[in-house]
C-alpha cells in the first residue's frame, strides 16, 4: 500500500463514477526493465522484496532446480523462474526470469474486482491492492492473465507486488532494483526504459547473434509497466510460462461495461412493468362463488 497523497489515482476497482482528481496532474509512467540476458539468478531481488515489505518467512521448496519455490506466494511476490531450455541444435540455454506483477495498463484484476477501492491504478502506471478494502472474493485471480494475485486464507485478502509504490511515491526506486548487482534490473520512465530495452535488443541482434531478440511489452493488455528483454521474443513461453498473447477474460471487459448495465435495466424495467400493469389493470378482484350444480341457488 502506498502513501496515497504522493500518487495520483487513475482507476479504482468497483467504483461508480470517475476517480477523484483524475487527469488533474501529469505523472510520468514508471517502468521496471528486466534484462533476462544479464540476470545471473542471484535472487538478491527476492530477498530485498521480502525484506522491504517485511513479510514473514516462507518455506522454500526444492525441486531439483535453483528456483526458490514453484510459484509466487501471498508473502513472496518476486520469484526468479529458472528454466533449462533445449535449442533445436541440442545446445542448452539456462533461462532466468524475474516473475512478478506486470502492472498492466489495462489491469484484468482491476476489471474483475467488485470491491470499491480494493484495487487502484495510479497515474504512473502502478497497480496496487488496498487490502483494507479487499473482500477476498478472488475474482482478481481469474482476471489476471499472468496468474499473479495470491490469496491468504488467514487474512482472507489477496496480495501481490506493489512495484514498491510506497518507495516510488517518495521518489525512490523499488527494493528489487536497488538490490540488483548486475544492472539487469532498471527503473525509470516508461519511455526511457523502452528506449534502453530496444537498444539492448538491437545490440543482442547485431552483436551477439540472437536473431529474435526483442522486448516483451504485450499490447493485448495495453502494454505493461514491467518489461523484459528476451533472447527470443517470439517464444516468451519458455521463460517460465510468460504468455505470448495475454488476454483478460472477455466476461470481465464486455460483461462489465456493456451487459451489466443492460441486465440491470432489464431487471428494473421488469419491476416497472409490474407496477404499470397494476396501475392499468388493477389487482385481481375476489372471484364470485361458482354456481352450484345441484345447490338450492342453481
Amino acid at each position: 500500500m502506498a502513501d496515497r497523497k504522493a500518487l495520483q489515482t487513475e482507476m479504482i476497482s468497483g467504483h461508480s463514477g470517475s476517480s477523484a482528481g483524475q487527469g488533474m496532474q501529469r505523472d510520468l509512467e514508471v517502468c521496471k526493465l528486466v534484462d533476462t540476458t544479464t540476470c545471473i539468478g542471484c535472487k538478491a531481488c527476492e530477498v530485498a522484496c521480502v525484506e522491504w515489505n517485511d513479510m514473514p518467512f516462507s518455506p522454500t521448496t526444492f525441486d531439483n532446480t535453483y528456483q526458490t519455490m514453484p510459484e509466487t506466494r501471498w508473502n513472496f511476490w518476486n520469484l526468479i523462474k529458472f528454466n533449462e531450455h533445449q535449442n533445436p541444435d541440442g545446445t542448452i540455454q539456462w533461462l532466468m526470469r524475474k516473475d512478478q506483477c506486470m502492472h498492466c495498463a489495462d489491469p484484468g484484476c482491476l476489471a474483475a474486482c467488485p470491491a470499491d477501492g480494493a484495487i487502484v491504478k495510479y497515474a504512473n502506471g502502478i497497480v496496487d491492492f488496498n487490502q483494507e478494502n479487499c473482500i477476498g472474493c478472488e475474482f482478481c485471480v481469474s482476471g489476471c492473465p499472468f496468474n499473479i494475485p495470491r490469496f491468504n486464507p488467514e487474512t482472507k485478502r489477496v496480495y501481490k507486488c506493489t512495484l514498491c509504490s510506497d518507495r516510488v511515491g517518495e521518489g525512490l526506486e523499488p527494493a528489487c532494483i536497488k538490490a540488483c548487482p548486475t544492472g539487469c534490473l532498471k527503473f525509470g520512465s516508461k519511455v526511457d526504459m523502452k528506449f534502453i530495452a530496444e537498444e539492448r535488443a538491437k545490440q543482442l541482434r547485431d552483436n551477439f547473434g540472437w536473431q529474435n531478440a526483442g522486448v516483451y511489452d504485450p499490447q493485448s493488455v495495453g502494454g505493461t509497466h514491467v518489461i523484459y528483454v528476451l533472447h527470443d521474443a517470439t517464444d516468451p513461453e519458455r521463460y517460465g510460462g510468460l504468455p505470448k498473447n495475454p488476454q483478460i477474460p472477455w466476461t470481465y471487459t464486455v460483461w462489465k461495461w456493456l451487459f451489466k448495465p443492460v441486465l440491470g435495466a432489464f431487471a428494473l424495467f421488469g419491476a416497472v412493468g409490474i407496477l404499470f400493469h397494476h396501475v392499468t389493470n388493477g389487482p385481481r378482484v375476489a372471484q364470485p362463488e361458482p354456481p352450484k350444480k345441484d345447490g338450492p341457488n342453481g
Partner: peptide, 8 residues
Amino acid sequence: ATAVAISY
C-alpha cells in the same frame, strides 16, 4: 480462471 470468469 476461465471457469470462474464465465460462472460470474
